[in-house]
Design a protein around this nucleic acid. Sequence first.
DNA 1: TGTAATGATTACAATTTGTAATGATACAAT
DNA 2: ATTGTATCATTACAAATTGTAATCATTACA
Lengths: 165, 165
Amino acid sequence: MGKPRNDEPSTPAEGSASAAFLLAQVGSHAATKFAERLAPLGFSPAHAGILRILDKRGPVTQQALAGILGMFPSRLVALVDQLESRGLIERRDHLEDRRSYALHLTEKGRSSLQSIGRVAREHQKALLAALTVEEQSQLGQFLQRIADDHGLTRGVHPGYARLKS
Amino acid sequence: MGKPRNDEPSTPAEGSASAAFLLAQVGSHAATKFAERLAPLGFSPAHAGILRILDKRGPVTQQALAGILGMFPSRLVALVDQLESRGLIERRDHLEDRRSYALHLTEKGRSSLQSIGRVAREHQKALLAALTVEEQSQLGQFLQRIADDHGLTRGVHPGYARLKS
DNA sequence: TGTAATGATTACAATTTGTAATGATACAAT
DNA sequence: ATTGTATCATTACAAATTGTAATCATTACA
């Protein structure tokens, strides 16, 4: 009954699924729940992702933003339209290249981002309620190490590419 | 610099994202990578899920299977067709109700399930390579507790409902 | 019996997602 | 300068996905 060795991965057989499966399962659930909490504010996860990136990486072109989010520029158009019509971001003229816009986060957008942050914290609290604070921190470290190991971009959910507008 | 208290969740600010976000991010990545490993065998995650459930929960009707997977019965038809045409499952007559079929896993299906299991273990090994075996086990326990806490059905990925045929 | 409900399937409508075409602009090479 | 090619945002369009409704056979209930 010793612990499994590294080259002979555990097959948790009955009772608990594999960590990899659980990761996908719980991750999907987390994404769904977060989207549900976001919906009342009129945002989709993709909206939140856009605001987040604009906040962190300053003004960018739509092309660059699409690249970061891993979605087609054509799909970004509608999302940007929606956020701009709500006054959360602005399409300002790009100084050096008149083909493109420089997307800016407005004050109102920054404020929305804070609301989103609050929702995210509530979400996290509910999601991880089964763990002690200490364990939550450990979980976060494990996940961050996995994410880094696989070259995942911080703050960019691979699923943005296919989360509805 | 003490640890955050429970009613004042940590905002990891810079450097590392929140555990909830990481969960969704890494989980999505895990699902994608698993699907990629499965593709060469001619399976989608949904296929694997069906075989898995038939193996564990004996013969079931398509209606019941759709319920378990959280997908529409109409969508299941094509998936079952594909698996049956490959001889991995069978639509046998239901003894008590001639409207429905009893879906059975064949020997060949059982063998495919083993191949899938091997792929899953390779996948897990690669996915969790950044963690020690001890940490992998801990991660699995954390995730299982979260999954149980939220009433997630063991072995059923919420995303099956929208993973391509 | 007959009337409503259920299971599998098919048909269809709605949504989502990827690609290609458009018009304006930039850049590189004459 | 001028011509050709590449890029950016946008639109138009095609393909795939997904949800709903209709169908047919069968079962359950009144």
